[in-house]
């Protein structure tokens, strides 16, 4: 056998090891051997990458299937990440106290994030919604005008900051009493959103970060959506950007909206 033949055989062997590794037909021992060899053989490693890329497109010929929402929630829990999507965030927040140890790499990952982002994550992780906002059906509300019809408290455990939220039917407004000042990173603002049972999330106004009483007035059309509200959300976003349109948006707190029973 010539040197050229040997090289050709080696090349063929490498191609087959890589291809069958990607295909998954190798027995366990051979598979482990290929993995060991890849650590020192750049050519083999490159060949594996080649087959991953070529055979990988076969998977794209299948009709995509949406996984259940619960999968993302589980991933978020296991990695300890702070998810932005309210659908997922709600369940993550309420299960925080029961959450088991995070995946090993999560703290390391987080340490690489920007400092202010880390602050936001820490705040969000420990955020506890102490009471549901009691938006009942506005049309059915029989409370006297001027009397608080709905109330809620949002509490941020690490800072001790809390907000008391009350709503009146007439006029259409939310009153937010901030019990302290929230340490907002420079260049960021907090914004309040309403998620209806059906339809898109609606921006309600700026969420206060300084101590004192604040009023959020709402157009009648927006107030009408309160009757069908599912949850309220507070996001942190870049100041000076349109609500929800900036490059940064982080969900901070979620308050489920429960029907008033009394």
């Amino acid at each position: 056998m010539t040197g050229s033949d040997k090289n050709s055989d080696l090349r063929e062997s490498s191609i087959l090891d890589a291809a069958e590794y990607v295909l998954g037909t190798l027995d366990a021992e051979t598979r482990r051997q290929v993995e060991r060899d890849m650590a020192t053989d750049a050519g083999l490693s490159q060949e594996v990458a080649y087959w991953q890329d070529r055979l990988g497109v076969l998977g794209l010929s299948l009709e995509p299937v949406e996984p259940p929402d619960s999968i993302w929630q589980s991933i978020a829990r296991r990695t300890g990440i702070n998810t932005v999507d309210a659908q997922h965030e709600h369940d993550r927040v309420v299960s925080l106290d029961q959450r088991s140890a995070r995946e090993k790499s999560a703290p390391e990952k987080r340490s690489r994030s920007r400092v202010w982002q880390g602050l936001a994550v820490a705040a969000s992780v420990a955020a506890v919604v102490m009471a549901a906002l009691l938006f009942s059906n506005v049309a059915a509300d029989r409370s006297q005008s001027g009397q608080p019809a709905y109330a809620s408290v949002l509490y941020d455990k690490p800072t001790g900051m809390s907000w008391l939220v009350t709503a009146s039917r007439q006029p259409h407004k939310l009153s937010v009493m901030a019990m302290g000042s929230y340490p907002l990173p420079q260049g960021k603002v907090l914004r309040l959103w309403l998620e209806p049972e059906n339809g898109k999330v609606v921006f309600l106004g700026k969420w206060p970060d300084s101590r004192g009483e604040h009023t959020l007035k709402m157009p009648e059309a927006v107030a009408a959506k309160l009757a069908h509200a599912k949850r309220l959300m507070v996001t942190m976003e870049d100041a000076g950007t349109a609500p929800g349109a900036g490059p940064f948006k982080r969900l901070m707190w979620v308050s489920p909206v429960a029907r008033r029973t009394g």
Partner: peptide
């Protein structure tokens, strides 16, 4: 090393 989607796949 290839397209992101095939890597994920």
């Amino acid at each position: 090393r290839g397209a992101p989607l095939t890597w994920l796949m």
